[in-house]
Every structure is written in structure tokens, then in C-alpha cells.
Design a protein around this nucleic acid. Structure first.
Lengths: 210, 210, 210, 210
DNA sequence: GATGAATGAGAATTCATTCAT
DNA sequence: TATGAATGAATTCTCATTCAT
């Protein structure tokens, strides 16, 4: 086979990307290293030149995914010109909560296979995003829109419930069941943060259609 | 090896028990059938005489565990002489929420390995216990102690947050971090169910000590 | 389970019958002893009380089958009132050559699975039936209808070709291919035995329709 | 174990060769993959690197064996300078009929175990060699040395009888019994093909000694 | 005669990882 | 950097057979 030399970062990124896709499609445990390299047209040794083990690349994938999310969240949280509520809306409005940020709906169909990748991502999301959201909550307390004693722990609880319950990868709910759970989630969040009822309406934009 | 004949139900229970323990200690994936039978001092064939595959016994364990929990919960929920709040206390006071009922702390040290068993149990716990708790909530609404629009979905959210966040099998929190999260959990539950502040104090009996 | 006591010969025959059917349906190698006893509603020990091993029952089946065929053939061959040609017709006309005597067509659909049983039967058929047919051939030589130097070996060759080629269990021919091969078989037999052309017409009765 | 790297084709051939020998010696079913690799001093993985399953290598062996035979037969059959009779002699004189070309007598002692390999080879031999021989027969008809209506079917019948009857792997005949059957085979072939008596003498060269 | 729980040697196959080239 | 042949421990599962009851 022709040996194709590439810039190390490019090769590494390519492997991460391919592995990430395959892990989502067929699951971490079921996806052999062989499958990954076959898909890429690269040799076994190449894989092990860049990653020392299979768990190693799983971690790399999750880190890589989270890095993107966290960076974005940080930039929003640190923006001095925005009120807390607007920051919340920016981070939670679309696909950023109760949703695996980087997964397209179509790809999630294969989900049940996907324990390892999913849970790891969920966990990291909760752990790394919670402090950022907590910081926003504290800003909101100062602005008088939130009222809550322990922002970090509260955020973590709410985040965990939202991530795991409506994630799609864990429980097998129908779309309408998911929607019902999202609406309830909104209410619980508002209560837990001591926010105005309806102030987190942005989390369920579909309703706005009616 | 000497052949020791036992009553089938006894043998079956013995295998379930041993497997359950080992799955908790070293994890489902990492615990080979070989390990289980070695521990028991029985032959490979004996295992496969009682369970047709490895996933099969995992299911048996989860079912077995949940059966016990659900039966107990049902009997509490159906007791006509108790008020809703007392039923809640009975079910949530000790180890029945935010805690894997059947796991001792010591055994949970090895937990990270334990995805499959844990998640399956968590999921089944949420799914099978939520309707029972929702029924109690409805009783409580009638009694005027709760005020909540969608009892089932609300319970599911709260349960998911509690189970997964403080479960120990998922996130790696220290005891004091766990305690902090439990206290917040109490508050969020009270708010979400529209209950009196402090009415779920039974969930954090430790505080009562201070 | 209720213990049902039966006369030993009856039990034995029952096991042979069940095993024979299953071996034909799913093949010897693929049919576990477990399957046989499950089908009969009898315990493992019972099987091993009557047969000392699995190969043992295979042999018993083939013997049993052949006993029937041989007995019938013997009675025809020893009939002093019949000419050789009539005996040949009696034994070869219908399903007794190039056909596994005891298999219904429908059951043979499953055939490819069936090496062991089939070949053993074929072999035993050739070995045990050949001497009987050879005796008839010798009678026929005396009657002037056959002319052949080594009746036994000739019969064995012809029998082997017929059994294995058109047996259905070995080669995968279509019905029309089988028919063509049967017609050729008739010609070769006539030539090899030094018989009148067309005297073995009874082997291909379908042609008579035309 | 020291790692010995070889050219893939060489390794593959080596595995085929070893497996072929062992299948002949102890039988396909009784010869575990483990046995094959132990014999070669390579690792389990090496076997499965080259063959995806055990049936897979059986097929490879038979194909490989037949490829050699067929190629040789084709080259003889297509030779425009030889008369049909000479081609027959070339192909059938020594070990090419009623004999598994690649089996030494000594190795065949263990034969009874050898169903799968043997039968598959026999079947493929009949199926792949028959058309080639039929072509020669047709040439012979043109040359006036053969007279037969359906060359292909006739050849198939004769071939089947010869292969299976004197193969050694199927029936358990003594050498003298084999010889007797070979002589009869010669006669039957001559008659069936409408050839001169004695023209296939080359099939039984031993007689020529007397 | 009959039961069925128990045995255990083995089978095929997988796959993460290594290393000579 | 890259290749891909080679490794081998580990895994799940089968099934003929045995034997205490």
C-alpha cells in the first residue's frame, strides 16, 4: 500500500474524527481498532503511533468534543456586556442542554449501542459546564433574576437530570415523551433557580409556534 | 471436583448472588463467566445450565434487584392508612433514593468499571419506581401537601437527577460533595413538588444530628 | 416430571425413531443428545441407559434401517418361483436404488446437513445389498438373461454410482439433471450386466408415460 | 515465542499445507485450529489473519487441490496433437482416477475420520473433471473409438462409481478387494463408452505384470 | 429403570497490542 | 512516520457424558 505521509496534527485529527463517527455509529465496545484503520486506509501501527490504547482515544474524543463546547460557553459567560438571562438563553436555547451537542439526530438513531461514549460525554459535560453556568447564575443573583443558595450544586443536579433524562441515549422515550419531559424540566429549573415562571421559555421554542 | 447437587432454586440464587457481587466489584464486562464459576467452585456447564448467556444473567440480576424494591414500594404506596408525606418518608428516608439500594459503600469503590450493571439498574429504578411515587404525589395533591402539574414527568426528572448524580457509580464525588448535593436535591424536590420547605428533611437525617 | 415406565424394547425403539427423524431433519452433528431427549420428554440418563454414546445410536439407526431393507431383499431373492429379471424389477423398480429407501422427499430438503447419516446408510446399503443382488445376477446368468464375469464387484460399482450420484444428499442436482442421470444409469447397468437394451426400463417408469 | 515474519503468500501456503496434512491424518472435525497452529509454531491470531474461519480453510484446501488437477487435465484435454485414447490414458492411467491424487497410501490409514475433506474433494473432482473428460469423449466419438449417447452424464456416473467405490476414504476394502473392483471398473467403463474391450487396460497396469 | 443437575474438556473466534521492516 | 504481519491471552459457549438421588 502506498505510504501517505501527513502532518501529525492532521493525522491525529483524522483518526479522532473517524473513531468518533464509528463509536457513535456502532458503539465503542463493538468498534474494533481494526475497523477504524480499515475505514481510514491506514495501518495498525499508525493508530498506535498516535494513541497508546483504545481507551486513550475515547478520552481524546470526549476531551476534544468538550473543549469546543467549553470554549464557547466560556466566551459567552465572560462577556461583560450580557445580562445573565441572555447568557442562559444563549447557552441553553438550542441544542446545548438535554442534547448531545455534537450529535446530529440522524446519527443518534444508532444510539443504544453507545453507552461508553455517551455516558462519558454526559458526565464531562455536567462536570465541565456546571461551573460556567454557576458563574452565570451568580451574576444573575446579583442582577436579581435568580435566587438560589448553592448555585453549583443546584446546577449540577439540574444538569444531570436534563442530560440523562432527555439525552436519548439512556432512556428510550418517544419524541412526545421527550417533549413532555422538557417542559417539566423548564419548570423545575425555574423553581430551583428562583427565576420568574416562563423566563426559561427559550428552552422549549416549539411551544412558541402555537 | 466433587459433584455437589443442590436444589435448582438454591443453585440459581447462588449464581445470581455471586455474579452480582463480582459485577459490582470488578464490573460486568471485566468479569468473565470463568471468574464467576471459579469463585463458586462449580463447572462452566453449571452456569450455562441455569443461564443461557452472560447478558442473560445481567438481566436476571437487575430484575431480581428491582423486583424486591418495587414490591416494597408498592406495599407502601398502597397502604390506605398512611398520608402521602409519610409514604414519601418511608420510601426516600434511608437508602432508597440517590443510592443504589443494594450496594454497600465499600463495594462501590471499584465502581467506575461498572457501567452496564449500574446504568441498567438506574434506568430500571427510574422507570419502575416513578409511577409508584407519582401515585403517592397524586395522593399528596389531594391532601393538599403537594402542588404540581405533571407528577410522573416531574418525578422522573427528579429521580434521574438524584439517581445519576449521587449514585456514586457515575460521578466520582467525595462524601462531603455527595452530602452537599443531597441537601440541594432536597430543596429542589420540595420546590418542584410544591411542598413545604423542610418537609423532605428526612432525606438528609445527618443534618438532624448537628 | 412424571416418571413414565415403558417396556425396554419400546423405549429403545422410540429413541431410535426420534433420533432418526431428528438426524434427518437437522443432521447428526447438529443434533445434540439434549435435543433428542427434549423432543421425547425423557431424561438424559434414560438416553444413556439405552445407548452408550452418540455414535452408538447412529450405528443403531443405520443397522435398524438396513435390517428392514435387507430382510425384504432377501425374501425376494430367495423366492424360488421368480425369474431373475422379475426379482431385479421388484427390488429396483421403485425407490430401492438411487434413493434412500426410508426418506420421504420432503424430508430430504434438509439434506445437506446430513453427511454422516447419509453416507453411512449409503455405504451399508451398498455393502449389505450387493451380495443379494449378485446372487440374483448369478441366477440370471443361469437363465441366460445376464452375462457378466464378476457379479459382486460389478454390482458394487453400479450400486455405488447410482447411490452416490443420484442420492440427492451428495451432489446438488436439479430434478431434470437427476432424471438424465437415471436414464444413463439404466443404460450403463444393462451394458455392464450384459442384459438386453431396455430390459431395465422399469427403473425409469416416467418415460413410459411418453 | 519469537516472531518470525514471512511473505504472506508463503505463510498462507504453509498454513494450507499443514492443515491439509492434519485433516488427512486426523480428520477435519477432529482437528482443532489449535492443533494446526501448534504444529506450525505460530499464534492463533496468525491463522485467523489468513483465514476467517475453519470452514474457510477447508474450502481453500479443496480449491487449491482441485485447481492443480483441473489445470493439468485441461492442458491434456486441449492438446490438439493427441488422440482421445491417449488423453484418457494420460489422465486415468496412474493415480488420477479412483484415487485421491494427493494422498499417499500411508496417510490414508487414518482415513475413516475424514468425511468432510474427502467427500468435498470427491464431489468437486467429479463436478470439475467430468466436463473435461466429456470433451475428450466427444473427441473420441469423432475419432470412432467411443460410442455413447450422453457423454457428460455417463462420465459422471462412471466417475462417481470409481471415485467413491475405490477411493479408500469411504469403503474399507482390502488392497486385493480394491484391485478386483478396479478391474471391473475398467470393463464397465469400456462398455459404457462403447470402447474396445481392453482399450482401458492402462487403468490396471499391475495386470500387465502378470 | 428413570431423573436431571452437574461436569469439564474443548471449541472457535476476537482483538488490543507489538514489533520487524 | 508508517506499515502490516504476528502475537496470544482471554472470552463465550457447547455438549457428550456422569452420577447422586
Amino acid at each position: 500500500m502506498p505510504r501517505i505521509v501527513k502532518a501529525p496534527e492532521e493525522r491525529r485529527a483524522e483518526i479522532i474524527e473517524t473513531a468518533h463517527r464509528l463509536f457513535r455509529e456502532i458503539g465503542y465496545a463493538k468498534c474494533s481498532v481494526d475497523r477504524i484503520i480499515r475505514e481510514m486506509g491506514v495501518a495498525k501501527g499508525t493508530f498506535y503511533y498516535y494513541f497508546k490504547s483504545k481507551p486513550d482515544i475515547l478520552e481524546a474524543i470526549v476531551d476534544h468534543t468538550l473543549d469546543g463546547i467549553v470554549e464557547m460557553a466560556r466566551s459567552v459567560a465572560d462577556d461583560p456586556s450580557l445580562p445573565a438571562m441572555a447568557k442562559m438563553a444563549a447557552l441553553l436555547s438550542n441544542s446545548h442542554m438535554g442534547d448531545d451537542t455534537s450529535l446530529e439526530v440522524a446519527e443518534m438513531l444508532h444510539d443504544p449501542e453507545n453507552r461508553e461514549l455517551h455516558e462519558l460525554t454526559n458526565i464531562q459535560t455536567v462536570l465541565r459546564l456546571s461551573p460556567i453556568l454557576a458563574q452565570i447564575v451568580e451574576q444573575g443573583i446579583g442582577e436579581g433574576v435568580f435566587q438560589v443558595k448553592r448555585p453549583l450544586e443546584t446546577i449540577q443536579f439540574l444538569f444531570t437530570g436534563a442530560q440523562f433524562l432527555t439525552d436519548g441515549g439512556i432512556f428510550a422515550f418517544s419524541p412526545s415523551e421527550i417533549r413532555a419531559r422538557r417542559e417539566v424540566t423548564q419548570t423545575i429549573i425555574e423553581q430551583a433557580l428562583g427565576a420568574e415562571p416562563g423566563s426559561f421559555q427559550f428552552m422549549n421554542p416549539i411551544r412558541a409556534v402555537g
